[in-house]
Design a protein around this nucleic acid. Structure first.
Length: 779
RNA sequence: GCCCGGGUGGUGGAAUGGUAUACACGAAGGACUUAAAAUCCUUUGCCCGCAAGGGCUUGCGAGUUCGAGUCUCGCCUCGGGCACCA
């Protein structure tokens, strides 16, 4: 299976779709010509917000809008001349598909991988829905740029954090771009450190409740330098630690913090602010009493929402301590042993050797981290701990156009899963599908759909009205490609085994930390549930580049630099558009669309056409001149290698070079004509077929033919250019046969007039010979 | 701030440590044409020179090597990702 990310049915193919699908098609065709059983499937990721917004605007409904687009885009896709495996087409909006999206959700629910809990979510006020962390960019809604606000709502979630370690560790075995792996590692953000408890010194309500404030740190080695503690404004123990004297200040600060959006809080250049609580905790490692502050530079949801502040060894704590005149105590020294540590002008945040740290003094940071944590662990005051930036995946959406979450809420039994035999829970038709201001999903308005018996107690219940994030739909679609018509299972074991995991997945880098992470999570979960026999869905991943406008800017309607593929096809034909996209540059890089550059490819194909139509020339020769034969064999070899490495641009230039040679010939043999068309056929399938049938008079399609073979021994007959250098500077080039001995090469070089001249002026001491490459006289 | 990528003619780009600038675009000149388009031919990295020829050049500066666009180090610069994550 050659997999490319299935498109969203936006209504129109843009040039990026051509790049995404027509170029991998070259590879699919190449594999097929090499005898592989290739499936290059296509489908539509068809649920999602734009359909609703467009339907509202056009006064239609999302399903009609979406299906119309799919029909139109299918027609456009067919114009590419790609070998799409249409019988396997998958559409996420088909009940036969989303039945299994729901079924998989239920399986996850059974295993506790899907759960409902209150959580702080990103809320987009314009779209009136929750967004995943991954869908928030710079504190704004990825879709419409509306600033996102934080809200606590009870939501359905996937326990992706259970898989955090495996999602990081298994990356090492994948043939993926290093940049994608790094992006995922950063996103998951594992850090290894310690949880440390700080006993509360003067608890207001002694007895009962928490006795400790717990912090997470990766720098236990700096514990002796902790001079205060900071907790986030949303920390549950804020009030408990606050004494009467500081109550007003704290209340004021909390009000302020609540008002701020996440973006305002996160802004780096902003000066840090905080207030003391009046409370104190004990640093058990040195029995010092240190004050507790509240400050919003501490992130509430990460770790324990509290940190030990070590101003001497952390930039943020340093800044805060300087502002509020808190003590700075240096406990890690860069140079050791040394008579004295340098006076700090900034926080020293690197590892070093400990000073002023009791029995740990002199230890390296790495050793001290472990020893200090261990010592406190013995007293029950610390433990080793890994922490992650990754959140659980919030999948509920308060929108209409998505897969209904198959759960029923009952006053008595709580949430109950819909029984499997009642799947799919079909999305009801709604006239008014607009989101409501109260944050409830539009499905709440479908009264007759809503009311349903509780599967447990048979009393009156209500369906869950939230729908699923569309990333749920796309987290398993490649599995369905293996067995798209199956009515009994999401896909049969046999078919899964036959087609998966995906050997090569081509797509856009924008999915690095979203779709690719989710699909990996799904695969791992399904593996653990026993439904698939592999741990990773995509063995190799290639990120395609971006096609830019002629002005080197990202294409956009507002810039007016959009290239419409339909128009280009009308002007030049599909083969030219395909081949030009292949020729533009390395596939991973993309590049600007040059409206004049496409002429080059158009001319090339026209010249191919003319050459084959010049009856006097083609198919007349019995055999080829040796040089042409060598060139042909080289080209076959090179293009095969380059397609395998997805280096399509150099393939095109090789064909151009070969054509330049063919045009110089008086006559061409049938064999050469055949080979040339075969090489061309994955790139320009229409033209190659036409010439194959009409000019070469073949009965069967060229696309059923085998990839041409090359003969290594013919390639070896090629004469080489022996470069003659003097002190590394090229002075002459001599044509010679392959495999000259060192002495033969020397004699040949010395025979050259130019070289003689140079060497009499300065006789060489020695020379270096690289066979079939060069000879370098060193003076 | 941290982590990744890039930087080669007028442009897109090519080059297992071994002829840098392949292939193409554009441009200039010429052929065909009443003319234009299309097509075909020639030239086309920069500098000196009438020429033969010579010198310089892969962001900048060092280094390793017989030999560096390619490897190493430092710097400049553009693009991307993460970003108060303790």
């Amino acid at each position: 299976m050659l997999l490319t990310e299935f498109p969203y049915p936006s209504g129109n193919l843009h040039i990026g779709h051509w790049y995404a699908f027509a170029i991998p098609d070259i590879y699919a065709r190449y594999l097929r010509m090499n005898g592989k059983n290739v499936s290059y499937p296509m489908g539509f990721d068809a649920f999602g917000l734009p359909a609703e917004n467009a339907a509202i605007k056009n006064n239609t409904n999302p399903r009609d809008w979406t299906e119309k687009n799919i029909a139109y885009m299918t027609k456009q896709l067919k114009s590419m001349g790609a070998v799409f495996d249409w019988p396997r087409e998958v559409r996420t909006i088909d009940p036969e598909y989303y039945k299994w999206t729901q079924w998989l959700f239920l399986k996850f629910y059974e295993k506790g991988l899907a759960y409902r809990a209150p959580t702080l979510v990103n809320w987009c006020p314009r779209d009136k829905t929750v967004l995943a962390n991954e869908q928030v960019v710079d504190g704004k809604c990825e879709r419409d740029g509306e600033p996102v606000i934080q809200k606590e709502i009870t939501q359905w979630m996937f326990r992706i954090t259970d898989y955090a370690d495996r999602l990081i560790d298994d990356l090492s075995g994948l043939d993926w771009p290093e940049t994608t792996k790094i992006a995922q590692r950063n996103w998951i953000g594992r850090s290894e450190g310690a949880l440390i408890k700080f006993p509360i010194f003067n608890s207001k309500s002694s007895g009962g409740g928490q006795k400790y404030v717990e912090v997470f740190t990766t720098r236990a080695d700096t514990l002796f330098g902790a001079t205060y503690l900071v907790i986030a404004p949303e920390h549950p123990m804020v009030m408990k630690l606050t004494d009467d004297q500081h109550l007003d200040g704290i209340n004021e600060y909390l009000e302020e913090a609540k008002r701020k959006t996440e973006m305002e809080r996160a802004h780096l250049d902003k000066e840090k602010t905080g207030v003391p609580t009046g409370g104190f905790v004990l640093n058990s490692i040195n029995n010092e009493k240190i004050p507790v502050w509240v400050a919003d530079y501490v992130v509430g949801w990460y770790g324990t929402g509290a940190v030990m502040a070590v101003p001497a060894h952390d930039d943020r704590d340093w800044e805060f301590a300087k502002k509020y005149n808190l003590p700075v105590k240096m406990v890690v020294c860069p140079n050791y042993p040394a008579p004295m540590c340098p006076v700090l002008e900034n926080a020293f945040i690197e590892d070093g050797h400990l000073v002023d740290s009791a029995e740990f003094t002199g230890m390296k940071s790495s050793e001290a981290r472990e020893k200090i944590t261990k010592k406190l662990k013995e007293k029950g005051l610390a433990d080793f701990k890994k922490n992650y930036k990754l959140h659980d995946w919030v999948l509920s959406r308060q929108r209409y156009w998505g897969v209904p979450i198959p759960m029923i809420h009952c006053q008595t039994c709580g949430y109950q899963p819909v029984s499997e035999k009642d799947l799919p829970v079909k999305l009801p038709k709604l006239d008014d599908f607009k989101p409501s201001d109260d944050g409830r999903s539009p499905l709440a308005k479908a009264i007759s759909w809503l009311k349903v018996k509780c599967p447990q107690c048979r009393r009156e219940g209500e369906r869950e009205t939230d729908t699923m994030d569309t990333f749920v739909d796309s987290s398993w679609y490649f599995l369905r490609y293996a067995d798209p018509k199956n009515k009994k299972e999401f896909a049969s074991q046999d078919k899964i085994f036959k087609w998966l995991p995906v050997p090569l997945y081509i797509g856009g880098a924008e999915h690095n930390t979203m779709h690719l992470l989710y699909a990996r999570f799904y695969t791992k979960a399904l593996h653990d549930l026993g439904y698939v026999n592999f741990n990773e869905p995509f063995l190799k991943r290639v990120n395609r580049g971006l096609i830019l406008g002629p002005d080197h800017q990202k294409m956009s309607k507002s810039r007016g630099n959009v290239i419409d593929p339909d128009e280009e096809v009308k002007k030049y034909g599909a083969d030219t558009v395909r081949m030009f996209l292949a020729f533009m540059g390395p596939y991973e890089q993309g590049g600007p669309w040059d409206p004049r550059g496409i002429n080059g490819v158009y001319r090339f194909l026209s010249r191919v056409w003319s050459l084959f139509n010049a009856k006097s020339k083609t198919q007349n020769a019995k055999s080829e001149a040796k040089e042409l034969e060598i060139k042909l064999n080289q080209t076959i070899k090179k293009i095969g290698e380059d397609i395998s490495e997805l280096k399509f641009n150099t393939c095109v230039s090789e064909m151009m070079k070969l054509l330049n040679e063919l045009e110089k010939q008086e006559n061409l043999s049938l064999a050469v004509c055949r080979s040339f068309l075969l090489l061309l056929s994955p790139f320009a399938p229409h033209l190659a077929e036409e010439l194959w049938l009409n000019i070469l008079k073949n009965k069967n399609s060229i696309h059923l033919e085998k990839w041409p073979e090359f003969d290594e021994t013919i390639i070896a007959e090629e004469k080489i250019n022996l470069i003659v250098q003097i002190n590394g500077k090229m002075k002459d080039v001599i044509t010679a046969r392959r495999g000259l001995s060192k002495e033969e090469a020397k004699q040949l070089a010395l025979a050259s007039e130019k070289i003689k001249k140079h060497l009499t002026e300065m006789p060489p001491k020695d020379f270096i010979y690289v066979q079939d490459k060069l000879i370098n006289f060193v003076g």
